[in-house]
């Protein structure tokens, strides 16, 4: 069954842009989506994953290895045939255990053949794709630590049950959560590249449009996908061209000074903020087909790159976005 097309999602422009930026430059380190239930968070992520052009994998490889990269697979793949596979989208359930996530001893083979084999977990499954975690704020802490660590290093190291395995796990981490139901520790939040806040569209017209599109999709999924195929193809092309452009785009020293000034102004600790700002501005420039990275690109992505890094002042109710906008106003007028 055809998935809901990415371009058919009504509104939620900031979330869509953040997802596209993360797709263009996965090194940005994941997107955290704050928002109520039923605002299309997982729909958008799923749609983006199914939008991506199929990737080449070795047949029967359980680690989604890239055939063009030699020796990346932890086990010797016997099959050499390459096939096309859709970009993986892994939805991690809330109650997932550590074994399920990192992988564990293959019990079946251990009992049957007495072999010590590794059963890849969700991280291996998500390699080169998307890992979506709903309600990440309710996830057990040690799992969040582990996930962010793997997402940042791009490698999953398993040292347990007598196994010693390492395999690549490069994925775009998408977390979602509702701050009303519990919060994520600041040091974990800081490790997400971008964060966006989504709300249900408030205008009645938008809501009616959503109903119409969802009903149309439910009645005839393939026909609906057909209708939006053109718009979706345009997005695929823009991602592909932005990815090609990305290495050629240089960030000027003046812009880097802007980046540093902005971080200083809003009081962001650590250097992650600066690095993400720089990367995201570059990806944004690549997406908007610009020849160079301009201040305008920086300002467009500043809220989503910094929002979650501001120091929490328990006595100050002012929203983070407002504080960033104020800083931009003061610095750049």
């Amino acid at each position: 069954m055809a998935r809901f097309p990415f371009s058919a999602i009504v509104g939620q422009d900031e979330m869509k842009r953040a997802l596209l930026i993360a797709a263009v430059d996965p090194a940005i380190g994941g997107v955290m989506v704050f928002g109520d239930r039923g605002t299309g968070k997982s729909t958008a992520t799923r749609a983006l994953a199914s939008l991506m052009p199929p990737m080449h994998v070795l047949e029967d490889c359980r680690f989604n290895c890239d055939p063009s990269q030699e020796r990346s697979c932890p086990i010797e793949c016997s099959a050499k045939r390459v096939r096309k596979a859709p970009v993986p989208f892994v939805d991690m359930p809330l109650g997932a255990t550590e074994d399920r996530v990192v992988g564990a001893l293959d019990l079946e083979r251990a009992l049957r053949a007495g072999e010590k084999a590794f059963e890849p977990g969700l991280l291996a499954k998500a390699h080169r794709g998307f890992l979506y975690i709903d309600e990440i704020n309710l996830l057990e802490d040690h799992l969040v630590d582990l996930l962010l660590d793997v997402a940042a290093s791009g490698e999953n190291v398993v040292e347990r049950e007598g196994l010693s395995v390492r395999h690549s796990a490069k994925f775009v981490l998408i977390g979602s959560g509702n701050p009303e139901e519990g919060e994520l520790r600041p040091q974990l939040l800081d490790r997400f590249g971008l964060s966006v806040e989504v709300r249900t569209p408030q205008s009645i017209e938008d809501r009616v449009e959503i109903i119409k599109r969802c009903s149309a999709q439910a009645d005839d999924a393939d026909g609906f996908a057909e209708e939006w195929a053109e718009a979706d193809t345009a997005i695929v092309k823009s991602i592909a061209s932005a990815r090609r452009k990305l290495p050629k785009l240089e960030v000027s020293d003046e812009l880097l000074a802007d980046v540093a000034g902005l971080c200083k102004q809003v009081g962001v600790d650590g250097l992650r903020g600066e690095l993400t700002l720089m990367r995201a501005a570059r990806a944004q420039a690549a997406l908007s087909k610009a020849r160079s990275v301009k201040r305008q690109h920086l300002l467009e992505i500043a809220p989503m790159a910094l929002r979650h890094r501001l120091r929490r002042d328990v006595l100050d109710e002012t929203g983070s976005t407002v504080r960033i906008e104020r800083a931009i106003e003061e610095l750049f007028g």
């Binding site: 039923g38 009645i204 809501r207 009616v208 109903i211 009903s215 009645d219």
Partner: peptide, 29 residues
């Protein structure tokens, strides 16, 4: 399928009752 006016009536009602979840609206339709 529900007419645009009917969708709108349900959307207005959901908004008036403070229901933000789009799923609820789709279920209503």
């Amino acid at each position: 399928p529900a007419s645009p006016e009917q969708c709108e009536a349900l959307a207005q009602t959901a908004a008036a009752l403070g229901i933000d979840d789009i799923r609820a609206l789709l279920f209503a339709v």
